[in-house]
């Protein structure tokens, strides 16, 4: 059932069967219109405004703004943080979801609650927790300083904060999927002689691939766009610990609006690029269902 949902989500929505009566036509038009107006006002216009402002001083100014060393460093750092944290939360998410959906064990509910924690806690608090743990005055601060390891106001802290805020996405996406699919196919694979690993790669993973992809996309979007938690641990050191969202803020606070929007348009491009990658991947792994 939820495989169907996932597949639906993955594909352009198929139009629903024609409704019984023509009377519903005005209602349908009104609803469609309302949805489009809403999407236009709250999604399309703001996006357009970002690009309009970014290009308000011409293409050269845009190129200048995004190619200055600090902007390039911020872009690079953002990509690096996403590349480090997304694979980790993906592995964790798949393992945790499988554990929770397939086994009944002591602490199962606790694990579920912990996975939800980052959704419930403000990202700023998450950042502060890491400062309290790993900062100079923090719990592990002295020990870390002794070994010359810098976590807070450095890249490791940013990765930690990003891991924290992106933790739930993959697991939360997969748990209901795995639960609704049941374990029949996995058990069939076992009786046919498959090892645990073979079962996972050949049966479990193909069945959850669309849900997994969706969870990874969400986690990636959040990893690249996270502001609050990263802001607390980063220290805003230009060229070193500034991610793209933080760089946008700095530029904006310095009244360099056009440059701020130019860098923001980079973030928008990253988002669009992610969506395109998702569409391409879906086509590749689509096959039949």
């Amino acid at each position: 059932m939820s495989a169907i949902v996932a597949a639906r989500r993955a594909q352009p929505l198929t139009p629903p069967a024609p409704s019984a009566s023509e009377d519903s036509r005005p209602v349908r038009l009104a609803l469609t219109g309302a949805a489009l107006v809403f999407l236009g006002l709250f999604l399309f216009v703001p996006l357009l405004a970002v690009f309009a402002e970014a290009l308000s001083k011409g293409g050269e100014a845009w190129v200048a703004a995004v190619s200055e060393p600090e902007a390039r460093a911020a872009l690079w750092l953002t990509l690096k943080v996403a590349a480090l944290s997304v694979p980790l939360v993906t592995v964790f998410g798949v393992a945790a979801a499988w554990l929770i959906a397939r086994f009944d064990f002591r602490g199962r509910r606790l694990l579920l609650a912990l996975i939800d924690l980052p959704f419930a806690v403000s990202p700023v608090i998450a950042g502060l927790v890491f400062v309290l743990l790993f900062g100079r005055q923090g719990l592990f601060g002295p020990a870390l300083a002794e070994h010359g390891v810098k976590v807070i106001f450095a890249v490791p802290g940013i990765v930690l904060a990003t891991l924290f805020v992106t933790l739930p996405f993959v697991a939360r996406e997969l748990i209901p999927l795995l639960e609704s699919e049941g374990r029949d196919e996995e058990e069939a694979a076992r009786t046919l002689g498959a090892s645990g690993l073979q079962m996972f790669w050949r049966v479990t993973l193909p069945n959850i691939r669309f849900g997994l992809l969706y969870g990874v996309i969400l986690a990636n979007a959040r990893a690249m766009g996270e502001f609050g938690a990263v802001s607390v641990v980063s220290g805003h050191i230009r060229g070193l610990t500034n991610t793209l969202p933080l760089h946008v803020e700095i530029l904006y606070n310095e009244y360099r609006f056009q440059a701020a929007f130019a860098v923001a348009s980079l973030l928008a491009f990253l988002a669009i690029g992610t969506l395109v990658a998702k569409a391409l991947l879906e086509r590749r792994i689509g096959g039949s269902r």
Partner: peptide, 22 residues
């Protein structure tokens, strides 16, 4: 003995065919 080593053929009530395979 583990299920995978027993060499039993099991036909499930709802068949449990692998959906993504021919």
């Amino acid at each position: 003995q583990d299920a995978r080593l027993r060499r039993v053929g099991f036909v499930f009530q709802h068949y449990a065919l692998f959906r993504h395979m021919t």
